[in-house]
Design a protein around this nucleic acid. Structure first.
Lengths: 232, 232
DNA sequence: CATGTTAATGACACCAAGTGCCAAATGGAA
DNA sequence: TTCCATTTGGCACTTGGTGTCATTAACATG
């Protein structure tokens, strides 16, 4: 399980000729210039200066070249959830953890946009991403179960996991569509909708309603937080 | 766009040697006995008594053999939405249309379970299904937009589409997990959660709360329904 | 220095999904 | 019978992905 890349300073055996990052950058350059579908794995191997077989040892599938280090970052997600859960009611911990998890520094913003535009735009990638999302949801569901949400066999945590994914995806899609928009703001809005629920005629809640939902939740949080934690 | 299968009684040209249904049944038999991944398209072609090339003319991908006539059934979904929207507030129309859309007669129930178990259980199929779900969501989003939900550029309808999919998927997963459960009941419960929103500590709403949310919505429906329809 | 160990690389053959192309088959219509 | 429309099937080809094995490059040891 240990990444053989970061072992002791001196490693035994033939040294690596490259690393995931190098290959991925080479691949993304090609993808961005000619489109995901129109680049073959042979071309990527060439561009990365590595044999086709070796390329497949670093990335099991072509899709993984785009998703990059997502799998590893799920641990961060878990830590964020547990951290916020110590100081906020669960609902708000969820919201803040997701927002934090999806925050990227300005310097990487354009890269992130390109990557996500590819993931949400290319059908093959969009399909494959479902499997990544499943891992992401699992972090949330496991976390909720540990926090005592739902009885042992209840599917309520799974439902929440799905709803969070839905809110996140929707925010992402809108972010990509609107050039100047801010992802964190959109995520925040989407999660507010989860909290309020869908009203009768499905009109969007007003800004004041959204703000209200957050402030009231904070006001009522003390007693409920205590009850929640005692279940653990 | 017209299915050449159902043209006039006498068609010109070489007659078809088979049809989608026959091929699909042959394929599903193989899938059910040996698993989706372990059956090759060549074997399916053999079993259906047709050449490999012809098989690919009837079904563009291996995945489509499992999804069958889903694409065509989306029209039904649309009609259900429009029908219920005439007599119910939007939120309830959505709920009832989805439940109706996913109702299958007892005779086909076991088949439906098998199919869905395959779709939600085999990773490759699960991934591909995202593209089918996207079409399903589009029906909902288009419907909501036509009903005047959200301003022209608002992403609120898209969010609702995602949330409905999340609720449906979650209900389906639970249905497959619990042997004796009823899909419609589970769908109904999941959509109730959408309506109520997530409460502070993410405890599942009680049965009385769920029932209450439905009755109050019906009581308040008259004035709101009128306003909603006037937007159209 | 010679030798063995370890781990990565690259070459090759192979499989399965899917596509393009074209000739052959099959019926109705002229 | 001949023409025409349409489906079928054969074949070669592309691409993603896997299994196998010899080769290469370091380190460690005698």
């Amino acid at each position: 399980m240990k990444k053989s890349n970061e072992g002791p300073a001196t490693r035994i055996g033939r040294p690596r000729i490259t690393n995931q990052g190098e290959i991925q950058h080479a691949a993304m350059r090609l993808f961005n210039s000619r489109g995901f579908e129109d680049v073959t794995m042979d071309e990527i191997a060439d561009a990365a200066g590595v044999s086709r077989r070796t390329l497949f040892r670093y990335f099991a599938t072509k899709h993984d070249l785009v998703w990059g280090e997502f799998d590893g970052s799920l641990l961060t997600m878990r830590l964020l959830l547990e951290q916020y859960a110590r100081e906020l009611p669960l609902r708000e911990a969820l919201r803040k953890a997701v927002i934090d998890f999806n925050s990227v520094p300005d310097s990487e913003l354009e890269t992130h946009r390109q990557r996500m535009r590819m993931i949400l735009g290319v059908p093959g990638l969009q399909a494959h991403s479902t499997l990544k999302y499943a891992d992401w949801r699992k972090e949330i569901v496991d976390f909720l179960r540990e926090q005592g949400v739902g009885s042992k066999s209840s599917w309520y945590p799974d439902l929440i996991g799905h709803l969070c994914l839905a809110a996140s995806l929707s925010a992402y899609e809108n972010w990509l569509e609107c050039e100047g928009s801010d992802l964190c703001t959109l995520l925040d809005q989407a999660y507010s909708m989860l909290i309020i629920g869908l009203n009768e005629d499905l009109t969007a809640p007003t800004a004041t309603q959204l703000k209200q939902s957050r402030t009231t939740s904070r006001a009522a949080s003390t007693r409920q937080a205590a009850r929640t934690r005692s279940k653990n």
